Computed example of a mutant assay.
Amino acid sequence: MKRIRPGQRTRTRAPEPTQAGARAPEPTQPRPRARRRCDRGQVALEYIGFVPILLFVALCAIQLGWVAYVDEQADTAARTAARVEARNGEGGERAGRAAISGGLAEGAAFSWAATADAVSVTVTLEVTSIVPGLSLGPATATAVMPNDAPPKGP
């Protein structure tokens, strides 16, 4: 017969009602517990160990979205600046800066190359890093538009 420790739950057999002077019920095997006491806190420990990895993956996903956003802003600014410069002959940089949303416009660098046939504009925007320790290069976009500006001078 198995020993029962103090405080341990046991199942007992009820005495049969037909027996006169039935003995006290004998304890049977204890119920198996769902978890052992030594496993307490195991899930919390695994969760605490996994949280930094999960946060790093989330930051990398946000960083990837930010890089794509800045690249798209550079492309939009280059197309807008080249289109305005090709049609009007001036005001391309102002239009390009207006096409950039948020605080990215202050750090934008525009470079121009104009010929009689086409206008080429290159825009460079700095990509800030969200993930610690990650250094990213600038986002650069170039757009070329046919030169439709009226000729200057007499």
Rank of each mutant, 00 (worst) to 15 (best):
T76S: 03
I4S: 14
A105K: 12
E90Q: 15
G65I: 09
A68N: 01
P27C: 13
A14T: 15
T80E: 04
A81C: 05
G49D: 06
Q8A: 12
Q42M: 13
R9V: 10
Q63G: 04
S111R: 03
M145D: 08
V67N: 04
R97Q: 08
A77T: 06
L59A: 11
L136I: 05
A149W: 12
P146H: 09
Q73R: 03
A143P: 07
P151H: 04
A81G: 09
V131E: 10
G21E: 05
S101I: 12
V127C: 05
S129P: 01
L45E: 07
G103H: 11
I48Y: 00
E106A: 01
A34P: 06
G107W: 05
A61N: 03
P150I: 13
E93W: 00
R35M: 11
E72S: 15
S135G: 06
M145I: 06
P27Q: 09
P146W: 07
E85P: 02
L45K: 10
T122K: 07
T18V: 13
A105T: 13
A14M: 15
A109I: 10
G7H: 00
K2A: 15
I53F: 09
T12C: 13
R5L: 10
R13T: 13
G89F: 02
E126T: 14
R33A: 14
P17M: 07
D117K: 07
Q8I: 07
L64C: 12
R94N: 04
G96S: 02
E46T: 01
G137M: 09
E85Q: 08
T80M: 00
A139H: 04
T10V: 15
R3F: 15
Q19L: 11
T12P: 00
V70Y: 05
E26G: 07
E126M: 11
G153M: 11
R3D: 15
V57C: 11
P151E: 07
F110E: 03
G91T: 09
A86M: 05
M1C: 15
A95G: 00
T18G: 14
L125T: 06
V144A: 05
V51F: 09
V123L: 06
S120K: 02
G107N: 09
P6S: 10
